[in-house]
Simulated scan of single mutants.
Amino acid sequence: GPGMIVIPMAGRSQRFFDAGYTLPKFMLPLGGESVFAHAVGSFAAYFASLPFLFIVAPGAENIAFVEAECARLGVASARVLELTAITAGQAETVAIGLDGAGIDDAEPITIFNIDTFRPGFEFPGAWFAGLDGWLEVFEGEGANWSYVRPAEGDLPLAAETAEKRRISNLCCTGLYHFARAGDFRAALAAERLAPQAAELYVAPLYNHLIGRGGKTGYSLIDPADVIFCGTPQEYQALLTPA
Rank of each mutant, 00 (worst) to 15 (best):
A71F: 02
T22A: 14
R12A: 14
A10K: 03
Q14R: 15
M27A: 13
A60V: 13
L53K: 06
F65N: 04
L23Y: 00
A44W: 00
R72G: 01
I7D: 00
F17Q: 04
I7W: 06
G32Q: 11
F54E: 07
F65G: 01
E61K: 11
V75C: 10
F47K: 07
G3L: 11
A88S: 13
V6L: 01
Y46R: 02
A76K: 15
A68Q: 09
F26C: 12
T22P: 04
A44D: 08
T87R: 06
P2T: 11
A64S: 15
Y21N: 06
G32V: 11
A45G: 14
A44R: 14
T84G: 14
C70E: 02
A88V: 00
T87M: 10
I63R: 15
F26D: 11
D18Q: 14
A76V: 12
F47P: 03
M27N: 04
F36R: 05
V35I: 15
E69H: 03
V75M: 09
S77Y: 05
L73I: 04
H38S: 08
A60K: 14
D18V: 05
M4W: 02
F16D: 03
R15E: 15
V66S: 03
M27T: 00
L81A: 06
G20N: 03
A37H: 06
F43P: 00
A57G: 12
I63K: 11
S13Q: 10
E33Q: 14
L83P: 00
I7N: 03
